[in-house]
Simulated scan of single mutants.
Amino acid sequence: MLTQIVRPMVQTQLRLLAHSRATRSTLISTVSHWLGFLGVRAQVTQLEAGSGKIRIVLTVDKPEACDPQDWQQILCNLNQGASEADLFSTGATKFTPQQQSKMCRLLAYLLQIGNPDEPVDWNVMYPQLQALGLDESTLMGIRSALKVPQSLENLVEGLDSDVAAVALPKAVSIAMLDKQVNSSEDLALSTLLKVMREQQDMANSSQNWKHLNADQAR
């Protein structure tokens, strides 16, 4: 389980920080090291403490696993100033009705497995989901999907990477609403990530094959 792996490591690092004589430099190194686990090359450019919190400013290079074109598109999107809710809405509006339904069912499934012993209280959950930036049509789709038990196996069948990519950030946010991730939530998030990676690898292989054929034709 993800939390069983990560939390003890974080607790150990924090204990080391507390007893370090060079806390600032150690923390800077630790943050870069943690992000390195994700293949992200990051440099801490500012670090300061105040009001019981630590403020860190990062400069992040293109992650190792990121396609150069994807990275340029990310930079372009950020420069346009779109919010996360705007990006989610833009991605979702490009979906077919079937894809939209699949995404709503995925998010409903995350809610169902968050506390499988109790039914989802929509009156409590609705404002929390609104705060995550979900639009009204998506919220109503989730509410409808909650009326029947959802199955991860059925949801993953035929799932394409675009739906997984748009759903994953919101799925993570939903899983963390109670500040913890149980084994079922961890499996669902890992499955979404796997779908994204597998289809991205297939796309990269196809692109490399085209480049190889083009080089051979010259």
Rank of each mutant, 00 (worst) to 15 (best):
I5D: 15
V6C: 06
R7V: 08
P8W: 11
M9N: 12
M9A: 14
M9W: 13
Q11F: 11
Q11S: 12
T12R: 06
Q13H: 06
R15F: 08
R15N: 09
L17I: 08
L17C: 05
A18Y: 10
A22F: 10
T26Q: 15
L27M: 11
S32G: 13
H33W: 11
W34Y: 10
V40E: 01
R41D: 13
A42T: 12
A42F: 08
A42Y: 10
Q43V: 04
V44T: 09
Q46V: 05
Q46H: 10
Q46I: 02
S51F: 03
S51M: 08
G52L: 06
L58W: 06
T59D: 13
T59P: 05
D61T: 06
P63W: 11
E64H: 08
A65N: 12
C66M: 15
Q69F: 14
Q69I: 14
Q69R: 14
D70V: 12
Q72H: 13
C76W: 15
A82C: 09
A85G: 06
A85V: 06
D86V: 09
L87Y: 09
S89H: 10
A92Q: 08
T93C: 15
K94W: 11
Q98V: 08
Q99I: 03
R105L: 06
R105C: 05
L106E: 02
L107H: 00
A108W: 00
I113P: 00
G114F: 00
G114C: 02
P119T: 01
V120H: 01
D121A: 01
D121K: 01
D121G: 02
W122H: 03
Y126H: 08
Q128F: 04
Q128E: 03
Q128S: 03
A131L: 05
L134G: 02
T138H: 07
M140Y: 03
M140W: 06
S144G: 07
K147G: 06
E153D: 09
L155T: 03
E157V: 04
L159I: 01
A165N: 11
A165W: 13
A167G: 03
P169N: 05
K170L: 07
A171P: 00
A171S: 05
M176D: 09
K179N: 11
K179F: 09
S183T: 11
S183D: 14
E185I: 00
D186T: 02
L187R: 04
L187Q: 08
L187M: 10
L192N: 01
K194G: 12
V195P: 05
R197I: 14
N204T: 13
N208H: 14
A214K: 10
D215N: 08
Q216W: 13
Q216A: 15
Q216G: 14
